[in-house]
Design a binder for these strands. Structure first.
Length: 94
DNA sequence: CAAACTATTCAGC
DNA sequence: GCTGAATAGTTTG
């Protein structure tokens, strides 16, 4: 398990993102203490050994652009919409 | 150890 | 709004 300086911090940062919410690479980079490692973070997420335990689909570009996804941007969009649906369901409690 | 690659970001026009 | 250049870290040889 390559827990490099960024990897470890990125994991926690990404896992800290609320359901249905999205953060930018810069946001994660800054939270990790590496405000200029936004690209390296993308690399880690892309090559991350556990894409299932890491909500890497919640990471998008600063322009609100999806950016990319290890399993396909299309899938990423689907998950984002799905998470929003789940969030909506949780708030819709009577 | 050095080079190459990258799911990005910023600046200029 | 789009194109070009820059930056920082991971990965591979």
């Amino acid at each position: 398990m390559d827990m490099t300086s960024l990897t470890k911090k990125v994991y926690k940062a990404v896992l800290s993102i609320p359901l249905g919410e999205v953060r930018t690479y810069k946001w994660v980079a800054k939270k990790c203490g590496h405000p200029k490692a936004f690209r390296a973070i993308g690399q880690i997420l892309k090559r991350n050994p556990y894409p299932l335990i890491i909500p890497c689909h919640r990471i998008i570009k600063s322009n609100k652009d999806l950016g990319g996804y290890s399993q396909g941007v299309k899938f990423k969009k689907t998950i984002l919409d799905l998470e929003k649906n789940i969030k909506s369901c949780l708030q819709n409690k009577e």
